[in-house]
């Protein structure tokens, strides 16, 4: 398990969340969104995408494939229409 810092774009605060090494980035996005969407950020019927150091990564890539280390920071957002 890896603790990460995450900001759901549009939310007001960065939050701590935990992912597994085998999680895909789609799963990572869901785990962070759980703490933001429908709590402070309005729910939308759109998929998420993950940005690491400003770069969007495919959702089916695994956490251990992108080399995330404990407390690295990621941004999750609704994918643009």
């Amino acid at each position: 398990m890896i603790p990460l810092s995450g900001l759901f774009e549009g939310d007001f605060v960065a939050q701590l969340f935990v992912v597994g090494q085998e999680d895909t980035l789609n799963q990572l996005a869901e785990k962070l969104a759980y703490h933001s969407v429908d709590r402070r950020v309005a729910k939308q019927d759109r998929p998420f995408e993950v940005l690491i150091k400003g770069e969007v990564f495919p959702g089916d890539v695994k956490v251990n494939e992108v080399g995330l280390a404990p407390m690295d920071h990621v941004v999750v957002r609704y994918a643009p229409l």
Binding site: S5, V13, A14, Q15, F17
Partner: peptide, 15 residues
């Protein structure tokens, strides 16, 4: 259900 990430200087939430 989780913690906000806190600033390593001011110790306040990064917000």
């Amino acid at each position: 259900e989780t913690l906000p990430v806190l600033c390593s200087c001011c110790n306040l939430p990064i917000c």
